[in-house]
Design a protein around this nucleic acid. Sequence first.
DNA 1: AGATCAGGTATCCTTTTGGATACAGGTATC
DNA 2: GATACCTGTATCCAAAAGGATACCTGATCT
Lengths: 113, 113
Amino acid sequence: MTKEEKRFQEKIKAIQDTMFVLGGKWKLPIILSIYSGNKRFNDISNAIPKITNRVLSKELKHLEENLLIKRTVIDDYPVRIEYAVTDYAFGLEEVIKPMESWGKKHRKKISGK
Amino acid sequence: MTKEEKRFQEKIKAIQDTMFVLGGKWKLPIILSIYSGNKRFNDISNAIPKITNRVLSKELKHLEENLLIKRTVIDDYPVRIEYAVTDYAFGLEEVIKPMESWGKKHRKKISGK
DNA sequence: AGATCAGGTATCCTTTTGGATACAGGTATC
DNA sequence: GATACCTGTATCCAAAAGGATACCTGATCT
């Protein structure tokens, strides 16, 4: 493999990592929903009506593993669980802004083709 | 739906559009392979050994529809087909650079958790 | 004791994405 | 006329992502 090929492989891997973290149907809606103030499992579930419990649960785990949200057990009676976006998640701005802006430009380009 | 919710919906749609265009296992490798000088179907197929004809063909169509590559029929004998990245594709730089850089940072963050 | 609620799991199913293999159609070559 | 090359297409299959529905656990409420 040439040097250039290796650089490309790493570039591809990094970009695909980003898409692995944010990709799929629900990860962004969930992050933004929690950011908007929905802290509890059922709050989020109601705010995003079409997601099922199974998928919400899996996605929350994924986001927690990737340090974008934090799950806190609050130990009064009854025990509550609260989700919050982390400070680290705010670092996403640097990538989601360009993705949003390219996506918008691209939609215009394609629709007016 | 509140104003804020609507803004979020549009943000999400735009970001997911970007991921629709670039996402999946092969789209970036194909773009970079063509950019590196592989113009013919079989060149690309050989440069990316694990892709099958079926998938390569589908992905080339997707990239062409999204104006990132151009397919040209060259009419001597035998007829050849040449693929090239478009000028428009160079505009991806503004989005793939931040995606690459966030992806790299994130991998470090996660692996050293 | 029985009902209720929060925060999920468990099981099964459908859709989407990608892979394996064969081969087709048009031209050129032997 | 048979054979080979190029650019795909056709058919079938496997894996991954997502959806529907039921249910569980631990606590509190009546």
